[in-house]
């Protein structure tokens, strides 16, 4: 009797965890496992069109070495790293500044501005990119027309500029969202802390530096990790801009390259290897960042 009761008691937490565990396994662990499995497959064919039949054999790590020996794929990794190096600080500083401005005592119509800054997040990324694309194409864009009227010839889709044109779209779309996360945490700061600081003689800037920023640190860390992962997974923007820009190829970003190998050229195994490599990179960078800020705190 007591033994069964104890056993039943031990199962209770699992029953509560089960829905999460099952979904986590099915939608997260299983696809990752399948991708890792796929990345180690090699297809062997006979006959000129493969009409003699095809079979899948274990290929070890050869898809990984093929991916990493493709200079175009390695370039794409370098490109998203460069993109992240610029985009992450830009995004976080902008989101934090917007949040602090809207949270400051002297802000006018904060609710309206908050909604305005957040609004672009409601536009699906593909549609946002199509619309921005119109603003980037010479001959169609009113902005470029106005600039050329002033004597400025700007190529927003050229090899050296298109990455920053993409950064513009990403910032436009996500800065408001990140701002909202930080504002939510700002609102949770108890008023007494401000009163105490003001009584101690802190001005608005000191209040920001010594009270607000330290207390919204968790929100900033969270948005930074999201932004790191998001920038590494750059996909929809270059895919949509690709037909408009001669500077974007199917190997522009690692995700685009994996997509192309999987669905256009039917090299699913190579695509899986590229996807796993990108996931590893995102994992290392996100956890590296978390360790870095964790150490700083101690």
């Amino acid at each position: 009797m007591p033994a069964t009761a104890r056993r039943r008691k031990a199962l209770v937490p699992w029953a509560f965890l089960a829905p999460f565990c099952v979904l986590f396994l099915l939608l997260f662990i299983a696809p990752i496992g399948y991708a890792v499995y796929q990345s180690m497959i090699r297809v062997e064919r006979t006959g000129p069109m493969g009409l003699g039949g095809a079979r899948e054999v274990f290929g070890g790590l050869e898809n990984y070495s093929r991916a990493l020996s493709d200079p175009a794929f390695v370039d794409s990794l370098g490109r998203v790293l460069l993109f992240a190096a610029v985009q992450v600080p830009l995004m976080i500083v902008l989101a934090t500044v917007l949040a602090l401005l809207l949270d400051s005592a002297s802000a006018r119509w904060p609710a309206m501005f908050r909604a305005m800054f957040f609004l672009p997040y409601g536009v699906p990324g593909v549609i946002a990119t199509i619309i921005w694309g119109f603003l980037y194409v010479p001959g169609v864009s009113p902005i470029l027309d106005a600039l050329s009227w002033l004597g400025l010839e700007v190529d927003l889709l050229g090899p050296s500029t298109v990455l920053w044109s993409i950064a513009n779209i990403v910032t436009w779309a996500f800065a408001g969202y990140n701002m909202l996360v930080i504002i939510a945490q700002l609102k949770a700061i108890p008023g007494e802390l401000y009163e105490a600081a003001i009584v101690d003689g802190a001005g608005p800037l000191r209040l920001v530096w010594h009270v607000k920023l330290p207390l919204v640190r968790p929100a900033i860390v969270l948005t930074t990790v999201f932004t790191i992962i998001g920038t590494l997974q750059l996909f929809a923007e270059p895919l949509v801009l690709k037909p408009l820009s001669t500077a974007i190829s199917f190997t522009y970003s690692p995700n685009l390259s994996a997509f192309n190998e999987a669905f256009n050229t039917n090299n699913q195994a190579l695509a899986a290897a590229e996807a796993v490599l990108l996931a590893l990179g995102a994992f290392v960078l996100s956890f590296g960042f978390l360790r870095l800020v964790g150490r700083g705190r101690r």
Binding site: S249, N264, T265
Partner: peptide, 21 residues
């Protein structure tokens, strides 16, 4: 060939690079 799509992209990559200098 059975890899025409990839062949097109191989050429595109070079042309794009050449246009970029």
């Amino acid at each position: 060939i059975p890899t025409t799509t990839a062949m097109y992209e191989n050429l595109n990559q070079g042309f794009r690079a050449a246009v970029a200098g």
